[in-house]
């Protein structure tokens, strides 16, 4: 506890570790559980007044893909965290069922859907970028992405944008 007067606050640098001013978050996976953490971290950074950029690469591009971002699913195969019997995870429709189940839980907790969340994050002033190599690899164009995407950039440009901050790979 400190007793402060109504004066500019003097952060005592010698007692406090340096604050995080900037983060660049890479989203590389296209599953529900691969995308949400990066979005939550980007949104949380902006809420703390931290400069944030999101960089979508490989299957993470689905998060900003117009046609696909409403249909992001949770992986039920090769996902031991679900505690499902292995063969059951591969049953047709299982991924949709689990996604629906998780979706209804998220709705109850007022966690926004991926399209809504990304729109909100863009409104917070977070940059949204697509990885050029992945865009080329998948034969995509600017028009495949939601309008909030700022640009399609190279890895070199990503590092320029990330300069002076932390990089988080998810």
């Amino acid at each position: 506890m400190t007793t402060a007067l109504l004066q500019p606050h003097t952060e005592s640098a010698e007692f406090m570790p340096a604050k995080i001013d900037k983060v660049s978050i890479v989203v590389s996976k296209g599953s529900l559980d691969g995308i949400y953490p990066g979005l939550i971290m980007a949104n949380g950074a902006r809420a703390e007044g931290i400069t944030a950029n999101l960089f979508f690469t490989f299957f993470g591009l689905d998060a900003i893909h117009k046609a696909r971002h409403e249909h992001i699913k949770i992986a039920t195969v090769g996902n031991p965290g679900l505690h499902l019997v292995t063969w059951l995870g591969g049953v047709p429709g299982m991924s949709s069922v689990m996604t629906h189940y998780l979706g209804s839980k998220m709705e109850k907790l007022d966690i926004p859907s991926i399209p809504e969340f990304i729109e909100m994050i863009a409104d917070t002033g977070c940059g949204l970028f697509a990885c050029k190599a992945s865009v080329d690899l998948f034969g995509l164009t600017r028009e495949d992405f939601i309008p909030q995407v700022d640009d399609i950039i190279t890895v070199g440009e990503f590092y320029e944008k990330a300069a002076g901050g932390h990089i988080i790979f998810t």
């Binding site: 506890m1 400190t2 007067l5 109504l6 406090m16």
Partner: peptide
């Protein structure tokens, strides 16, 4: 007189 306010380390009112 200047008012003394009790704030936590992040500057929020106690």
């Amino acid at each position: 007189p200047v008012i003394d306010l009790a704030l936590n380390e992040e500057g929020f009112f106690l």
